[in-house]
């Protein structure tokens, strides 16, 4: 293991060798302009000319404002759901459990949105951290669905066709609520060169928003319904985001 003094001792040899290497490879500040620069400049100018309109204006906002806008939209969707279409047995639902689920889902959603809109001038986060976030986004609503609920019985999910229709309605509701977040987050991303994990994260974040609204809207507490119609949204919208890229 090299220590600081080892490195300092070697630094003069290193400096001399590497200066020679730089000259050999043509690095550093050279007076001669590389070929193709003029054509490149024209293409950059053309890019900048195209940077007009509402989406360009939104993308240009400072990152904290871009993140705040997406979070504001999320808050608005959740707030409107809670105010306009709350679950029928909300007053009886265990308040602590509700708070834990909402905070957990909101937390993962917030981190996912931050990761999505993270600017390129910051050091790149590791692939592992993005994948971990994806897993957390899919697991959080799954754990919420499987978390046993004692002392409270929600609405009957029905059987057969009625069960399927109920699941379909919840999936549609969650998808409709998540779609604006997916659209806004995707349009406000500045880079189009992100890897698949980041693209999928946009869909997972939208699925989490769908779960947040469903948590406040759907009175069914059956774990199978929650798994199929609520928790699956994160995975489903993640796949949609990948196909949409």
């Amino acid at each position: 293991m090299a220590t600081s003094s080892d490195i300092d001792a070697l630094s003069s040899d290193m400096a001399e060798d590497m200066r020679a290497a730089r000259e050999l490879l043509g690095g550093g500040h050279q007076a001669e302009l590389p070929p193709g620069l003029e054509a490149l400049r024209k293409r950059v100018d053309a890019d900048l000319d195209r940077e007009k309109g509402l989406m360009a204006t939104l993308r240009d906002r400072p990152t904290p404002q871009r993140i705040a806008l997406v979070l504001l939209l999320t808050g608005l969707l959740v707030g409107v759901t809670a105010a306009a279409a709350p679950r029928g047995e909300l007053a009886d639902y265990p308040i602590v459990r509700m708070a834990i689920v909402l905070v957990a889902l909101s937390g993962v959603t917030g981190v996912a949105i931050w990761r999505l809109l993270r600017p390129l001038h910051l050091p790149k986060p590791s692939k592992a951290s993005t994948r971990l976030l994806l897993v957390a986004g899919v697991l959080a609503p799954t754990v919420a669905a499987l978390w046993p609920l004692y002392g409270h019985v929600g609405h009957d999910p029905g059987h057969g066709m009625a069960f399927a229709v109920g699941c379909g309605r919840c999936m549609a509701f969650g998808a409709v609520m998540g779609a604006p977040v997916l659209a806004l987050a995707t349009l406000m991303r500045r880079s189009r060169v992100d890897g698949a994990a980041v693209v999928a994260l946009a869909g997972v974040a939208a699925g989490l928003v769908g779960n947040l609204t469903l948590q406040l809207h759907c009175p069914v507490t059956d774990p199978i319904h929650l798994l199929l119609a609520h928790a699956s949204l994160a995975l489903m919208l993640g796949v949609v985001a990948l196909r949409w890229r």
């Binding site: 690095g27 490149l40 293409r43 950059v44 900048l48 390129l120 001038h121």
Partner: peptide
Amino acid sequence: RQLRDDDAQELVQQTFLQMHRARND
């Protein structure tokens, strides 16, 4: 130094576009 010329030009073009988009940051 590491890329074909067209890829190198594309990346520099992208860098300046990103610089423009991120200027308020």
